[in-house]
Design a protein around this nucleic acid. Structure first.
Lengths: 147, 147
DNA sequence: TTAGTTGCAAAACTTTTGCATACGA
DNA sequence: TCGTATGCAAAAGTTTTGCAACTAA
């Protein structure tokens, strides 16, 4: 599990500074490693701690952290990017079309698949993303509409 | 291979009308089933045929066709949605981070994976999306930077 | 005839940027 | 001190919406 000091070192190594604003944002993700939040979501959360923080700062910090591969920038097709802490095992997402919940699942199959693809198309794979869209347990129970 | 008449029937069945604007847009996708175009891209293409068409009409038509599952709304993380004709075999995408090219590839492994997931999480899968990010043959050849 | 459709312009959203000020190391 | 970072406001880019005029069936 990463600690804020590790991240501070990573920042320093590239001549970035650790500011109070960055610290708050990083702390938040460290405490909520399972969340997939948009810039706006993060903004609202960190405002609770420092009401003076600006939205642009949040955007710039998220971009910085994604560049450093501390966060992962994701897209769940709802018109905005979301960020999650990238210190976890590889996992993928089940996206519920009923309630927009995002459920994580782990899977190992894809590494070997990536190799096959790479060979066949002369494509150097550096990342991949697998998403299943459907309806979660709750929604299938309520939802005659969905089935 | 779908024909425009089939689509016209699908529209009529739901009390939608076949307008010249819609026809032009559908024709374009029928003729270019391999393209992954944004609303703006489509707008520019159809303007060549009918210069009076409005961008809002393009957006509304694409949304309609996606609802009818004639087009598929996709996201390649470049900040806008793209649409492709959904009459083809299942396939997935290799997205080149060097030149933004999108290459299609086919794969069968995922159906069975979907079943496993569904059972494990009580999740009813209705669609899925697999994307590999990396560098295409061209970019790996030019690109010392990428490797 | 009339319900659905269009084009335009304005609005809504998310994200980026310019710039003067503030601040971490 | 000095280069980086911040907050604000404005700008940019994509998508949506209100509305009067229009049109397919």
């Amino acid at each position: 599990m990463k600690h804020i000091d590790d991240i501070q070192k990573e920042l320093k190594a590239k001549d970035y500074k650790m500011t109070p604003q960055r610290k708050i944002i990083i702390d938040f993700f460290l405490k909520h490693p399972e969340k997939h939040l948009s810039a706006e979501d993060v903004f609202l959360e960190v405002k609770k701690i420092n009401p003076d923080i600006g939205l642009a700062t949040v955007y710039r910090t998220l971009e910085l952290l994604a560049d450093l591969e501390i966060l992962k920038k994701m897209n769940f097709d709802d018109g905005k990017f979301r960020y999650e802490f990238s210190n976890e095992e590889e996992h993928h997402h089940l996206i519920c079309l009923g309630c927009d919940e995002v459920i994580e699942f782990e899977n190992e199959v894809l590494e070997s698949l990536a190799n096959v693809i790479a060979q066949k198309h002369g494509f150097k794979v550096v990342d991949h993303q697998l998403k299943f869209y459907g309806y979660c347990k709750n929604c299938t129970q309520k939802g005659k509409d969905y089935i």
